[in-house]
Amino acid sequence: MKKVLEIEGLFVDLDLPAGTLQAVQNVSFSVDQGETLSLVGESGCGKSLTALAVMNLLPQSGRFRAEKMEFMGQNLLGLKESGMAKVRGNRMAMIFQEPMTSLNPCYTIGNQLEEAFLQHRDVPSREARERAVYLLEKVGITAAASRLNQYPHQLSGGLRQRVMIAMGLMCGPALIIADEPTTALDVTIQAQILALLHALQKEFNMGLILITHDLGVVARMADRVAVMYCGQVVETGLAAEIFNNPKHPYTRGLMDCIPVPGKVEPGQKLGSIPGIVPTPIGNLHGCLFRNRCQYFQPKCAAENIALIALGPGRAVRCISEQINS
């Protein structure tokens, strides 16, 4: 399989009044053609900032560095803004969490779809319009041609997210980054949008990075999973492995939070992870999960814990023997 995106040693720092927040620390991953990688973790774990760093769209207070950032064989590090703008929306597209606010209220969706195409292709606007109609039909919007003249406020949340997906596909990208694409939608619409993303990804053989906190979404969509906690990847592996045999105490804690019909009796308390996430400001050392971990041992605080390889593509950031036995 051809690698679409390869990231090694990515760090993202945010400058806050309280100090420098090390939002992403030494994150490495890769995505193949036609593959779905899911970045999972709770709010603030750095999964969205990882994606924004790849797109070079970090907020003003943020900056990133990496050892390697290669997209379709092209080194993204050191690309100037103009060079990066040629990649964005062209070979690499992003879909955001909030379909209600992610479209400009002042322009028709046709205008906003076509402009994505016209930015990267030197074609007449008629061709861009045809492409927009084709893709709106592809994402399951009926009467596509007349929809082009509608404004975002005339569409429902689910339709807008379909428009956002169509917009991402305008230039035929090799990689789609979807940041919580269904979080703001009704459950029934969620399933439709996920199925649509999955089908389109297979049809166009795109790499997909799916960012979510929802393990149900991961189970349905992901080929591989990277679990993030406090800016670090704490466990990676094939989705099936992670679900069947979670290793890291944090991953296990997440799994315990899910009610499974048959396993969990009505009225039975679901699992929860005690304690709160530390704020990664200042000198970080040791395991960042140690204060909440039932397997805590003095070694955990003393040294920085590296990802330990358990097999091909499978690794966990934990030194407890109980975990790795």
Partner: peptide
């Protein structure tokens, strides 16, 4: 706002 981020994600200058 989010739609400015969208516009930038499209690669607009």
């Amino acid at each position: 706002s989010d739609y400015i981020r969208t516009a930038r994600a499209k690669g607009l200058r």
